[in-house]
């Protein structure tokens, strides 16, 4: 990619550097460096730089400074060589024709973490990673990770699914999420993430949904202290690279990226669970009302139509994912 070209020039100008040409890959991350995804990015960076003896540099630009997920994807897909790699939510590819990845964000697909990781290490998962490349989008996935399950949280106390009825819940504009909230009897409400804290505080919305760690990091518990662990979707993430950057690498360098990806993926699995448990303990200590969901069936049942219409086209593939549990 660009990075490669850029540092070649850089090398010609900075004399006295005797190693062979250096490559810098710009890696866009929406979350801050100390988030699960951020830590995963730095684990990947360190491993790549270690395995390549510093020949491949990963320039992690975290906290969304290079743009939100869609901006980053537009840059990468539109041939903008300013970003070589990025971490995205698996469902972000949906609006770019990544139809298989969309299956991962269908509500109540993964029953637990193990289920997801069984999938992530399967051949099917590798097939999903290559889907955008094969569709001619010009990017390919390198590896998977997760940010934990996403749960609803509300301003008013809540006991179970029945209490969601009539609540205004903020979700992203993604059609599946909107349909799911409607199926649960609540009304999906559009509020930008920027205004979410205030919207919860003033009561514009009654609740929202995020992974536990984000719920804590954004202080949402201060204004919406009821967290119901319904785990509707798993925050599956993918790290992608542009074909252009990929093709500019030698086979050996590509292998280094793959190996570092495998390492980062395992690292992600470990810290995701740890961080989440720790966050949950801290939230409980702060007096957050954490509600366990013992029987997920009514939730699943409510979303039955949403699930089947979202998976219609790839029913067989979807069944394969379900069967991995």
């Amino acid at each position: 990619g660009c990075g490669g070209q850029q540092s070649q020039e850089g090398k010609q100008e900075s004399e006295g550097n005797s190693t062979s040409e250096e490559i810098t890959l710009v890696y866009a991350e929406v979350n801050p460096p100390d988030s699960i995804a951020g830590k995963t990015a730095f684990a990947f960076k360190d491993k790549v730089e270690e395995l390549s003896n510093g020949q491949i540099k990963i320039d992690v630009q975290a906290s969304g400074v290079l743009g939100a997920e869609n901006d980053v994807l537009d840059t990468m897909l539109g041939g903008g060589k300013t970003i070589d790699m990025a971490r995205i939510s698996a469902f972000a590819l949906t609006s770019y024709g990544g139809e298989k990845s969309m299956l991962l964000s269908v509500p109540y697909t993964f029953v637990n973490r193990e289920h997801f990781w069984k999938f992530a290490n399967s051949d099917l998962a590798s097939e999903f990673l290559l889907e955008p490349h094969e569709n001619g989008k010009g990017v390919r996935g390198l590896f998977y990770g997760e940010e934990g399950f996403r749960h609803f949280f509300t301003v008013k106390p809540i006991k179970g699914i029945e209490d969601l009825k009539g609540m205004k819940l903020r979700v992203s504009a993604d059609p599946i999420m909107t349909a799911m909230v409607e199926a649960l009897g609540a009304s999906p409400t559009v509020v930008s993430f920027n205004e979410l804290y205030s919207a919860l505080q003033t009561g514009v919305v009654d609740g929202a949904e995020q992974p536990i760690v984000n719920y804590k990091a954004n202080s949402f518990y201060e204004v919406a202290p009821n967290l119901i662990l319904d785990g509707h979707t798993l925050g599956a993430i993918q790290v992608i690279i542009t074909d252009e950057a990929w093709d500019s690498l030698t086979e050996e360098q590509q292998n280094i990226l793959m190996e570092a990806g495998k390492y980062a993926s395992e690292y992600n699995r470990k810290i995701s669970e740890e961080t989440e448990n720790q966050a949950l303990d801290e939230l409980k200590a702060k007096g957050v009302n954490v509600i366990e969901v013992n029987d997920i069936t009514p939730w699943k049942e409510a979303c039955k139509d949403v699930i089947s219409s979202a998976t219609e086209k790839y029913a067989e593939l979807y069944q394969q994912i379900l069967d991995m549990q």
Partner: peptide, 20 residues
């Protein structure tokens, strides 16, 4: 060039039928 390029690859998030 960019509009055409990205338009062939994506849609609005909330409106899957409208090209980017």
């Amino acid at each position: 060039r960019y509009s055409v390029e990205i338009g062939s690859k994506g849609s609005y998030v909330s409106m899957p039928n409208v090209s980017r």
